[in-house]
Design a protein around this nucleic acid. Structure first.
Length: 288
DNA sequence: GCGCAGGGGGTCG
DNA sequence: CGACCCCCTGCG
């Protein structure tokens, strides 16, 4: 297949580091020249910033312009969103200045589900390693610029992996969770197409929670970071708990902060954009 | 250098 | 609430 390219104006809401390091994705790697290369769907894409231009190049089955506009959420007006959030308070203002280039990627739902099940009680280097090994073993190989890349396996492809196979790839106790979830999605006990159609937020969330390995935090990450695109989802992890307590709740013992209280404040302050607010706060606090 | 302890984007029972 | 698998990191 042939290499395609696509270019856009960078603007003020597109920064490679912010997009790829804000914790939403696991398959993008920095190159020597500062660009990033990643695999999504059956595409291998390299993204670089040159002055005020963003250059996408790589191998796509479809038109690269279409593929990138969709994946990088390029039709959404993040300037407007940031303006709206900035007006809430100074914390939002500061965090948005810090992570001004964040965009929420449109990641495949199935891949996002498995990726965040793997993320439970785990660290990022290891998570990335596991996902890479899964892709190498069960995905399809694509050669680009002389290097081999591997697509994330489809449901059918991953369903060929037994619990022991997964264990050998380093999943640890998450092996059974991934195995069971794969089966439930394969036999449509949980239908991913239907999930996309469903309007009611809590219905979608409750359905995700049926899947083994998907608890409240993972469910909210899936809702926020996948093509489900639910910006009202508010994943609460140790970092978010920390920052929400520090800024709004001010409990002396951070571990005693009630999740309900965090959710209540998040919803009252940020409303339908709570998930995005979370992302700016999380990225700011974790980086700063 | 290498060996070892500590901990990590939670979930489950 | 405690265990959970194990790679990665950092320190001695």
């Amino acid at each position: 297949m042939q290499e395609q390219t696509y270019e856009i104006e960078k603007g003020n809401s597109f920064e490679l580091i912010d997009i790829f390091d804000c914790g939403q994705c696991f398959r993008w790697n920095k190159e020597m020249d500062g660009s990033y290369t990643g695999v999504f769907g059956s595409n291998v894409i390299n993204v670089s910033v040159k002055g005020n231009r963003v250059v996408f190049k790589g191998i796509c089955e479809d038109d690269i312009k279409k593929v990138c506009i969709d994946y990088f959420d390029l039709n959404r007006d993040y300037e407007k969103i940031k303006e709206e959030l900035s007006q809430i308070d100074d914390n939002m203002k500061t965090s948005i200045e810090y992570g001004k280039g964040i965009r929420i990627l449109n990641q495949d739902l199935w891949e996002t589900i498995i990726s965040f099940i793997i993320s439970a009680n785990n660290n990022i280097p290891r998570i990335k390693g596991i996902i890479e090994r899964i892709s190498e073993k069960y995905g399809k190989k694509i050669v680009y610029n002389g290097k081999s890349y591997y697509t994330f396996p489809t449901v059918e492809e991953l369903s060929k992996a037994g619990v022991q196979d997964l264990r050998k790839l380093g999943l640890g106790f998450r092996d059974v969770r991934v195995y069971e979830t794969t089966r439930m999605i394969l036999n449509k006990q949980v239908d991913l197409e239907e999930l996309h159609q469903e309007k009611n937020f809590n219905t979608v969330r409750d359905t995700l929670l049926i899947l083994p390995g998907v608890g409240p935090k993972v469910a909210d990450c899936i809702l926020l970071f996948s093509t489900l695109k639910r910006f009202e989802a508010f994943p609460i992890d140790v970092w978010v708990r920390r920052v929400m307590n520090e800024l709004y709740i001010k409990n002396v013992d951070e571990t005693k902060v009630n999740k309900r209280d965090i959710e209540k404040i998040a919803y009252e302050k940020f409303g339908k954009l709570a998930g995005l607010a979370q992302q700016y706060l999380f990225y700011w606090k974790r980086g700063a």
